[in-house]
Design a protein around this nucleic acid. Structure first.
Ligand SMILES: [Mn+2]
Ligand SMILES: [Mn+2]
Ligand SMILES: [Zn+2]
Ligand SMILES: [Zn+2]
Lengths: 133, 133
DNA sequence: TGTTACTTGAGAAGTGTTCTCGATCACGTG
DNA sequence: CACGTGATCGAGAACACTTCTCAAGTAACA
């Protein structure tokens, strides 16, 4: 049902080449910059597909933009993200998982999902900020 | 510096009258429905001000819309939100606070902030969904 | 009550994302 | 290795949410 097109491969490749979270538009720009004529709508579609398949993680930036990343594992986990350069650290947190499940159950909520992300400035960006201040 | 206008009061009042998170547009519709001629831009401005002052909490819905709520406390806390009716439960989680701080520090991140929200179906909405299924 | 600067609101503009639909192309079939 | 067909593509239109512009209105203060 799902065809293999160079466009899909290009998007997956661009995602893999990036180690932080990136937006669809940034990815499209990067692809264009490297000579690809891929369309923006196609990038959006490919990213959405990857996210559905579990091959990419997605989250919303504090500004409301959807960001994507090819994670090393498709198991459930969370992220520590540099809001300046996008550098991402994958984090596990069993305690938080349990807490989220408990707090939902205790309040009678079902079908609970949680959003848990930590944003900050990575060590490098912190140093850079201090130097330019 | 900040003037008192009936518009600002109206927005605050409408927020207070709502016990769940609401969007700027929903609030504007509600105000209009009750006869207020307040402008949409003004609602956005008032909500942004309230959020800055700490008089309202804001978060992004999974769909990317900004939602606001007049919370009972202005201390830092998180929310358990019904994705169907907006019903919100305020939750504290010292363990999660500590975890977020630790994970950032351990990875060399500074100026860390965290997004922690739990979305689900409240008991009432769960019952309703089961009945109509 | 007059001055002045802040606020408002209608509509334009901006931004991120999705939709439309004719052209293109992957891929199973013969 | 054609061929047929339906999935996929892409340019631009359409959308949804949010912010900006600026003329008109008004709160605040002397
Ligand atoms: Mn989790
Ligand atoms: Mn917290
Ligand atoms: Zn960084
Ligand atoms: Zn509910």
């Amino acid at each position: 049902m799902k065809r293999n097109t160079w466009q899909r491969e290009a998007v997956r490749g661009a995602l893999d080449a990036n180690d932080g979270f990136v937006s669809a538009q940034a990815l499209h720009s990067a692809l264009h910059a490297s000579g690809s004529p891929i369309g923006l709508a196609t990038v959006y579609r490919a990213l959405a597909d990857l996210a559905v398949k579990g091959d990419a993680d997605s989250l919303q930036s504090p500004e409301g933009e959807s960001l994507y990343r090819a994670c090393s594992t498709n198991l459930h986990h969370h992220h520590l993200i540099c809001r300046n350069c996008g550098l991402t650290v994958e984090i596990e947190a069993d305690a938080v998982e349990r807490w989220a499940k408990d707090v939902a159950a205790k309040n009678g909520f079902t079908e609970a999902a949680h959003v848990v992300d930590v944003f900050g400035l990575c060590a490098a960006c912190t140093a850079k900020a201090a130097a330019s201040a």
